[in-house]
Design a protein around this nucleic acid. Structure first.
Lengths: 222, 222
DNA sequence: TTGCGTTTCAAACAGGCGTTTGATACACTT
DNA sequence: AAGTGTATCAAACGCCTGTTTGAAACGCAA
């Protein structure tokens, strides 16, 4: 007996936020709640009942609009914020300033409360990768690393060997990501420390200076 | 009605591996399996049935030897490997060499296949902290950061301001942890890259050089 | 108004979950 | 051999899970 899957023939207008009704559509409320709950509990820990409760929709809506929990999870991934980063390119200013600017933007976005659910989702993927990680790397991370490689090359001023270039890029991303991935540890090590706009700016400044010094040292060896 | 909890009065000898029977005790097989499954699935995703299956023990053993799933999770945490790091202190050699040595050891341990389950456990705690993270930070991470602070101060040679010192320590740990936390991403960005002993050594060397240059730059500003 | 496709709903389904139970097997002293 | 704590076992207990169901409500053209 082939299982009959009920297909959701939703109005195509619901796909684009442009025409969505003002009291957000069931579908989009579901997506927002899914991002929340999945990021707090992970894929396995999250329950469709809790997602529907927060979205204030009926339990069966998940299987109507998406076909099941896994498809909802995949649909809940959102690559846009990371893509936006590279658009602050500023080709007119020097490479060093562009690198500093990128680190500022990246760290600010990482520490932003709004992106924290996406980051937690991402961390779950890092522990137990699914197909979602492959498309995330391909669509968002790989272009960002490529962009950073060019920034590093421009800032170093010389053609670094590929392995060194890769490690320099990793060193910069690693420093930034630490503040997100290990945030819970930092809170416990320094309970009084708060990552407000001022502290984030100072941290980004540190990472930029620290890394530029490291970069110049590496460039000098070539 | 107060719930009656059956307390496990196990033989005290079972606590120490010294006297454990050669076909490992039910208790230790349970701990080993728990580390495996918890690290793969997280606390919520893991099931006591799967843990017992892998440990080849009866389902009720979890509640007999530990009282419940949460207590088994807490008992499965193991702080020893991180503590061992600081014992390779080598007070005779210069600060720079000690820093390089520490980074080598730390990165080697991070990338070791055997510690990967503990690391995944830790990442789950980073996403959804429980009381286990508090004791982990207090017992293992805080001492390690303190140790690193001293190393950085010695290597810099000057008294860095507390905020700068903290950020330098974070920069070094961040670079190291990146290779563990983002390992799944690195695999997808550079499919041909393998982190064997040689690559780990080269990476540690890079982090040490990169960071020392950054450190000296920061020290020069004071 | 009627009819039709789309969306929402309360209720139920089968299966897996952590935990508990009472019986049984074991090791060892008396 | 009887007695005593310890350890293991199969089976069951509620409870919660993702998913399905068939009916009701809605939006809109004819």
């Amino acid at each position: 007996m082939a299982k009959v899957i009920r297909v959701a023939h939703k109005a195509s207008a619901a796909d684009t936020p442009i025409f969505s009704q003002l009291p957000e559509s069931t579908r989009s409320r579901l997506l927002a709640a899914a991002r929340e709950v999945f990021s707090e509990q992970g894929f396995q820990g999250a329950t469709v009942r809790e997602i529907c409760r927060r979205a204030e929709v009926n339990l069966a809506a998940v299987n109507y609009h998406f076909s099941n929990k896994q498809a909802l999870f995949t649909a809940a991934l959102d690559f846009e914020p990371l893509h936006a980063l590279r658009h602050n390119a500023m080709p007119e200013v020097c490479a060093v300033a562009r690198l500093e600017h990128f680190i500022q933007d990246f760290l600010t976005q990482l520490m932003d409360e709004k992106s924290s659910s996406q980051c937690k989702l991402m961390m779950h993927e890092l522990i137990n990768p699914t197909l979602a990680l492959d498309s995330f790397v391909q669509q968002a991370i790989e272009p960002m690393h490529q962009f950073m490689r060019q920034l590093v090359l421009d800032a170093a001023g010389v053609k670094l060997p590929p392995a060194e270039l890769r490690r320099c890029v990793f060193s910069i991303f690693g420093q930034c990501l630490f503040y997100r991935h290990s945030h819970a540890v930092i809170q416990r090590l320094h309970p009084k420390l708060r990552y407000d706009a001022k502290e984030i700016a100072a941290t980004a400044q540190h990472i930029a200076e620290f890394s530029l010094a490291g970069l110049k040292h590496m460039a000098a060896k070539v």
